[in-house]
Each structure stands twice: as C-alpha cells, then as structure tokens.
Computed example of a mutant assay.
Amino acid sequence: MPYKRLIPHCRDTQLLLSQAQDCRLSPLTRARVRVHLWTCEACTTFSRQLDVLRLAMQKLGRD
C-alpha cells in the first residue's frame, strides 16, 4: 500500500528524533514522525527519553 511509505520505520524515526535535537526538521518530516509516534509506543518512549536527556544536559550546563 502506498501510504506505508509515508510513515517511516522505527529505525528511521529514531534517527530523525535524534537529528531533531540538533536541527529543525522540515514540516513534512515532522508530520511523518508524528504519525509514526501515534502508532508506535516504543518510539514514543524513545522520544520521551531523549527529552529527559536534553533537559538533564541543559540543567548540567547551568550549574
């Protein structure tokens, strides 16, 4: 089915989430990642873990 190509696989989504920590993703790519996160609990957990790590690193930088 053609719609499946619009939704990235887990490996691609995790790479994109990591890249999003350093640079802004295009609107289409952000939308594709959001759609994947709606359907994948593992990648949603990975995304939350990245957020926690980012916040921890920011706090370390302030001390």
Rank of each mutant, 00 (worst) to 15 (best):
T13S: 08
M1A: 08
P27V: 12
T45S: 11
W38E: 02
D12S: 15
Y3E: 10
L50M: 10
T29P: 02
L53V: 05
L25I: 12
A56M: 07
R54Q: 12
T44R: 14
C40D: 12
A31K: 15
Q19H: 13
W38P: 00
H9G: 13
T44E: 06
Q49H: 07
A20S: 15
L16P: 03
R32P: 00
R54P: 05
Y3M: 05
R34K: 08
G61P: 04
C10M: 07
S18E: 15
L17K: 02
Q14S: 14
D63A: 10
Q49T: 06
V35K: 11
V52P: 03
H36Q: 04
Q21L: 14
C10D: 02
R62T: 09
D51Y: 10
L37P: 00
R62C: 06
H36V: 00
S18T: 15
S18M: 15
R62G: 06
R48E: 12
Q58I: 05
H9E: 15
S47R: 06
R54D: 06
C40L: 08
L55N: 11
Q49F: 09
T39P: 00
D22F: 14
T45N: 12
Q58E: 11
T39L: 05
A20L: 04
F46K: 01
A20V: 03
L55C: 07
L50P: 05
L6P: 03
T44C: 11
V33R: 00
L28C: 11
V35E: 04
L55M: 06
R11C: 01
R11I: 00
L60P: 02
R24L: 14
G61A: 07
E41P: 03
E41R: 10
T44Q: 12
P2T: 02
D22V: 09
P27C: 08
E41A: 08
L16R: 01
P8M: 04
Y3C: 06
Q19A: 15
H9N: 13
T45C: 10
L37K: 02
T45A: 11
R30I: 07
P8H: 07
A42K: 11
L53C: 12
A42R: 10
D22L: 14
Q21V: 14
R5H: 03
T39Y: 00
L15T: 15
R30T: 09
R54H: 13
K4F: 12
T13C: 15
R34W: 11
L6G: 10
C40S: 09
R11D: 01
L17V: 05
H36A: 01
V33A: 00
L37C: 03
R32N: 02
D51G: 13
P8D: 07
Q58V: 05
R11V: 01
T45E: 08
T44A: 12
D22C: 09
Y3T: 06
C10Y: 01
A42P: 03
C10V: 01
L53Y: 13
R11T: 01
R5Q: 07
R34G: 13
T39N: 02
Q21I: 10
D63C: 11
A31T: 08
R30S: 15
D12P: 14
D51H: 10
L60A: 05
D12Q: 15
L16M: 13
L16N: 01
R30A: 11
V52S: 06
S18F: 13
D51P: 06
R30K: 12
Q21R: 14
L37A: 05
D51C: 11
